[in-house]
């Protein structure tokens, strides 16, 4: 038996999902972070974040079309993590690393938290 593995398929699907997000096609939720609004697909959010998985598997919350995050969440940190969910690319800036890491802890994105820890360790001169 033979099987053809399309090696780019996962990234091609993600690219298309990101284009859909950018064009606001079939986005089904608005995430409110302080006063900033982010449109996204619930399925992508819950596939990447333990917090969103818990929210959208709750039958009382899964139909909400707007979710407010804790006001302590930094909108810039959230924007970087949302971009990561849709692109696989995490932009780590030293000035924002704590905001990104705290937001990743809040969103329960454990592997991103580990990566932030490693980034902080590697950039600490001591």
């Amino acid at each position: 038996d033979s099987c053809i593995q399309f090696t780019r398929h996962a990234s091609d699907v993600l690219l298309n999902l990101n284009r859909l997000r950018n064009r606001d096609i079939l986005t089904d939720v608005t995430i409110l972070v302080n006063r900033q609004q982010f449109r996204a697909h619930k399925t992508v959010l819950m596939a990447c974040s333990g917090l969103f998985y818990t929210i959208f598997t709750d039958s009382h919350k899964c139909n909400l079309n707007a979710i407010s995050l804790d006001p302590k969440v930094d909108p810039e940190g959230f924007a970087i993590l949302l971009e990561f969910m849709y692109t696989s690319r995490l932009t780590l800036k030293e000035s924002l690393i704590m905001a990104i890491m705290n937001t990743a802890i809040y969103l329960q994105m454990d592997h991103v938290v580990d990566t932030c820890h490693r980034f902080i360790k590697s950039s600490d001169p001591s």
Binding site: D1, I4, Q5, R8, N16, R23
Partner: peptide, 21 residues
Amino acid sequence: YEGVNTIKEMGRSIHEIPRQD
């Protein structure tokens, strides 16, 4: 897929949604 002869296809797998119409 153990025991299956897997052939790698490196090109695009699906159509590309345009950035904007």
